[in-house]
Design a protein around this nucleic acid. Sequence first.
DNA 1: ACTGGCACTCAGCTGGGCAGAGTGCCAGAA
DNA 2: TTCTGGCACTCTGCCCAGCTGAGTGCCAGT
Lengths: 357, 357
Amino acid sequence: MPDDGKPDGRLIDTRPSVRPLDERRLAVLRAIVQDYVGTEEPVGSKALVERHNLGVSPATVRNDMAALEEEGYIHQPHTSAGRIPTDKGYRLFVDRLAEVKPMTAPERRAIRHFLEGAVDLDDVVARTVRLLAQLTRQVAVVQYPSLTRSTVRHIELVSLTPTKLMLVLITNTGRVEQRMVDCPAPVGEALLGDLRARLNGMAGGCRLPEVPTVLEDLPGGFEPADRPAVSTVLTVLFEALAEQNEERIMLAGTANLTRFGHDFPLTIRPVLEALEEQVVLLRLLGETADSAMTVRIGHEIAYEGLNSTSVVSVGYGSGDQSVAKLGVIGPTRMDYPGTMGAVRAVARYVGQILDES
Amino acid sequence: MPDDGKPDGRLIDTRPSVRPLDERRLAVLRAIVQDYVGTEEPVGSKALVERHNLGVSPATVRNDMAALEEEGYIHQPHTSAGRIPTDKGYRLFVDRLAEVKPMTAPERRAIRHFLEGAVDLDDVVARTVRLLAQLTRQVAVVQYPSLTRSTVRHIELVSLTPTKLMLVLITNTGRVEQRMVDCPAPVGEALLGDLRARLNGMAGGCRLPEVPTVLEDLPGGFEPADRPAVSTVLTVLFEALAEQNEERIMLAGTANLTRFGHDFPLTIRPVLEALEEQVVLLRLLGETADSAMTVRIGHEIAYEGLNSTSVVSVGYGSGDQSVAKLGVIGPTRMDYPGTMGAVRAVARYVGQILDES
DNA sequence: ACTGGCACTCAGCTGGGCAGAGTGCCAGAA
DNA sequence: TTCTGGCACTCTGCCCAGCTGAGTGCCAGT
């Protein structure tokens, strides 16, 4: 179907001088991507017209393909083979040619049901990551809800020996962090109780990043003799808060890497290496936009070992606040609409589950 | 070098009637294993005599090989190829022909130094598993120190709402477990303090499995009105203790799977799948003898997906008590002496580190 | 602007032939 | 009896050539 004058204010100039890709060419590209993703084999002009009914002849399609190749959207492994999409081709496909494929109602029910069985935060994350791996048949990554957006539910101090305390921080997302504190002087029960009460009174309900500001002046309210101990506790607490940006991640579905492709011994190695580096994964997820779904394709990914993969990621959270990210990693030739649908659906339901708990 | 009369009390009957494998044949088997592990290729008689100086001719070695094959220790992929060891051959090698290769002094220093940097239990385990993967160039598995052998350092109760408590259990191995408790009736501060004190007084220092016995009669010591709440807390505590047999595991070095062999797309898949199943890994480690090092080879492993791998595992712990297991998983054709040396050394040093903290 | 036809290219398969590694066996030496 | 050298045999792996088929680019014609 040709350009029949979309209301873009240029009805007269029906053929703007810059017309790199008309409708049919896009349709051809879309068809190439779909076929290649399905068959894993370079797709030729003849097969294309047979499988999709674009009402033109192979020769015409060949011309379009030549143009698409010229512009860098597809590429020929060797003369006289079919075409395969380039990273740029997938990019165009994702941006303009594909719609996120929504999950069916039974699928949605299954997701919800599966996640609802979780008993604690660990379990929620574990179930989510497995579910995502299974739905997409790819490698799934889920980041634990970050502490930076959560709030203090309770701070507990436990005396282990006269000078040794255990500091326990409990957040509203159910996460618990503990730290040892070596105090410079013995801490009595009275002081401990007082400190515990004041900590909770002042910081309870605060967002974690705000805690240092809120507690800044706390030592001043204590007897001079007690101040060193109080300061030590605070230091440790602040450290714990800061360190929480070093976040945890859970992984599943690595066995799906074996479905990567023919040449996979070469591709799979760097991917496995990348997956072992929490740092890499965290950076990967970190680059995800907060609300919208992010798709990074092949060389768009900064980390070299993942240049033959694509990453689909999105934030999830309770309410509309995103508290962490999740996503999947797969070969560039992946089913983008389906993957994006699954990722979106799972993110949505995890968010709901977190809300409820 | 022929049998020159070792003092085994049978100087006269130099050739006992049962002589399935004499010295040289064992030497041949040993040489085959060593070469095959090194080259990954079937090893022939000629190459053997060249590389190891068994002072005999290839023809003689051939005869020995025929005998070894007859007995099932080695096997020929096809006529006119060299031999490769069978699982049974590796077994014999490990049991009788190989010595655990001790780490060199610099290696030991490096291990120790690397582990000493750890800041908490998670970090110890994380470092251990990475270290082990790096040393052996295989997949490493480390089980978290089990709770069943550890003791109670502290039990903390925190009131979140009048009827909602948070129970925190801290063990001497540094592990922290928390549980929510929903009480049937409001719990006042006085009761909470009392309960906390009694819990710690009675259970502090106890081994975890003994805790239920020790605390059995606790509710009786409280006012009748408070007993339901106390019972609820105990129930949750006991649950937490029981659940801890569901232990955690950490994994590293999966990228080393790519060094598995030529045919690895087929082998690697079930292995990756197995590695994702904590249950499988736990059972694998569970079958490890408590003190001695265990080596399971190929089909000796109950789990089918791992039938082309070998597992070297050993317990580790503080003092001489084993609190958990660790090990590595690699192809059956692995460097057993080296791997065993590394596993043993790492286990030893983790034990020491745990002792110190 | 599209189509049919044509010549061309090239990967992948097939089959034959060859080299090399390795074996088993046997007769003779130690 | 045990080892050795020699010999014939069996394979796999590799190379080469030729063929087939899929796919292309181009061009002339509608």
